[in-house]
């Protein structure tokens, strides 16, 4: 996976241009922005919170803040998606603080009709196992790992989102990966990883 892809300047300017079109009243831009940004926000919230209803609430609130700021958005400021990830991360942090525990649902994944029932079960088992392992991490580690290894962002962008240094991001993701390996210890065969 190309981790630098999300930092491409064209993508940043496209996002800003789309937001400007939205602010100018273009109805197509509203749909395009919603279609581009909502899955990313929801995916991140779902991985960090591990709860469908809370992830939906956070996504709707984060997108609402994007619509609200659109008329005042200045091109040349932060990248739109970076700003939106930061809002989402903060909303998730607020939820996690209020919750106080890590009692989380499993992430329900859709079944792929192209795969056999056995493959579907294994794929679901892998996603669930990773989510359960993620849920055991401290909140900041989980956010950093999800941003880096699932959302595929580069460390400087994660640093901007979590408002910490790049070194702190590196430390969080390294510790997070170590903890994940420990949490997944002994599940290799059950997850079918030995076949690969």
């Amino acid at each position: 996976m190309d981790m630098s892809q999300s930092n491409h300047p064209t993508e940043a300017s496209d996002e800003a241009a789309l937001l400007r079109r939205y602010a100018e009243g273009d109805p197509v831009a509203a749909r395009l922005l919603a279609g581009q940004m909502t899955p990313r926000v929801f995916g991140h919230a779902m991985r960090v919170l591990g709860n469908h209803a809370e992830a939906e609430d956070v996504t709707q609130e984060a997108m609402m803040r994007l619509w609200r700021i659109a008329p005042d958005w200045r091109e040349g400021d932060a990248k739109v998606s970076t700003w939106l990830y930061r809002v989402t991360a903060n909303l998730c942090t607020d939820r996690l603080r209020k919750r106080g525990t890590t009692g989380l649902d499993e992430v329900a994944e859709p079944e792929d009709p192209q795969m056999s029932a056995e493959q579907n079960m294994q794929q679901t088992a892998r996603v669930d196992a990773l989510q359960k392992a993620l849920n055991t991490l401290p909140d900041r580690q989980r956010q950093a790992v999800v941003l880096r290894h699932i959302d595929g962002l580069a460390n400087p962008e994660i640093a901007a989102i979590l408002e910490i240094s790049v070194e702190a991001v590196e430390s969080l993701t390294a510790r997070g990966k170590r903890a994940l390996k420990q949490a997944l210890e002994g599940q290799r065969d059950a997850l079918g990883l030995s076949d690969e």
Binding site: R47, R126, L180, L184, L191, L193
Partner: peptide
């Protein structure tokens, strides 16, 4: 193995 799990998660994001 961990990277395989990450790749699987990236390939199957939660459906909106």
């Amino acid at each position: 193995e961990l990277e395989a799990l990450f790749a699987n998660a990236r390939a199957h994001p939660p459906v909106v």
